[in-house]
Amino acid sequence: MEKKDLISKVDIMLVKELKKKVLKRIDEDFEIVDFSFALPYTYVLIKGKKGNSIGLAMTLIEDIQFCESEFDEIDVRTFIEKVDSVNIIERTIGLATINAVSQYYLNLEGAKFDDATGIIKDVKKVAIIGNMKPIVNKLKNRGYEVYVFERNPRLKSIDTLSDCFEYNLLPNMDAVLISGTSLINDSIDMILERSKKAKIKVLVGATAQALPEFFKGYLTHIASVKIINIKKVLLNLKLGSSSKLFSNEYSRKYYYNIL
């Protein structure tokens, strides 16, 4: 795909496109086994003909305006339909459901088993949307000029910039690593529009579990995590812990080139 084609597609609201694509991809009836809007991650566990699959979405406490949500039915399609709601709770559950369906269909053949830092090469300025500290530290140690943007006051530090500066600074970046939470707070379209000059655009994190093919033409890579021990991860999430979520015992980090 030519670069001009990649740029031209960012005018479309990506979350609405994502909803259409995943609803079209579903080819069997899934059962919702368990779900919870919880800290630090909301999760949805589904069951299909091939077994169980779990999808995650980080819970953005700072963006919750009210603590009410409403679903006509507790089923996969109903949850997914809410992913473009203005209610953050509904959006989060919707995205976790999209991720659960995506992980059910995900084929790891062709993936690289590393975190997002393995993608960054031959660039100077790197923007990181969301203070993902392990990634930030690795890239700084490798000598890149790193700009970290963060909205959550609890995650800000002396080394982070407010997300209000993304609009002016992103056009100067060579690479942009975007937290999957940008799909929840609906900042993804602005970020991509302002990052037109960046040759590397990566959606990153556990919230970025959607099928890579859904983002073709918008991003260059997806970097996320495949849960391999659903039972253990589910127990940890119920206890409000994500400390082992990214350990090799419970999951596998991966990234795809989707150009």
Results as ranks from 00 to 15, higher is better:
3 K>Y: 09
4 K>L: 10
5 D>A: 06
7 I>F: 02
7 I>Q: 10
17 E>I: 02
28 E>W: 05
30 F>E: 02
33 V>C: 07
35 F>V: 03
36 S>V: 00
36 S>W: 00
36 S>R: 14
43 Y>S: 03
44 V>N: 04
46 I>P: 04
46 I>K: 13
50 K>R: 14
55 G>A: 10
58 M>A: 14
59 T>R: 05
62 E>T: 12
62 E>M: 10
63 D>F: 11
65 Q>V: 05
66 F>K: 15
69 S>H: 11
76 V>C: 09
76 V>Q: 07
82 K>D: 01
86 V>T: 10
87 N>E: 01
88 I>A: 00
88 I>W: 01
93 I>V: 08
94 G>N: 02
99 N>P: 09
102 S>A: 08
102 S>C: 13
107 N>Q: 10
112 K>P: 00
123 V>K: 07
124 K>C: 01
131 N>C: 12
133 K>L: 12
135 I>H: 13
135 I>T: 15
139 L>Y: 13
141 N>Y: 04
143 G>D: 02
143 G>N: 12
148 V>G: 05
148 V>L: 10
151 R>C: 02
152 N>R: 09
154 R>Q: 09
154 R>C: 00
155 L>K: 12
158 I>G: 15
159 D>K: 14
160 T>A: 02
172 N>Y: 13
173 M>C: 11
175 A>Q: 11
176 V>F: 06
176 V>S: 07
179 S>F: 02
183 L>H: 04
183 L>A: 11
185 N>D: 11
187 S>M: 05
187 S>A: 14
192 L>S: 07
194 R>T: 05
197 K>A: 12
197 K>D: 13
200 I>R: 08
201 K>Y: 02
202 V>D: 04
203 L>E: 02
206 A>C: 07
207 T>F: 03
214 F>R: 06
214 F>K: 06
215 F>M: 09
217 G>S: 06
218 Y>R: 07
223 A>P: 11
223 A>H: 13
225 V>G: 00
228 I>E: 15
229 N>P: 08
229 N>L: 00
233 V>E: 05
235 L>C: 05
236 N>Y: 13
238 K>L: 11
239 L>R: 12
241 S>T: 10
245 L>G: 14
248 N>C: 10
250 Y>Q: 08
251 S>K: 13
254 Y>K: 10
258 I>V: 11
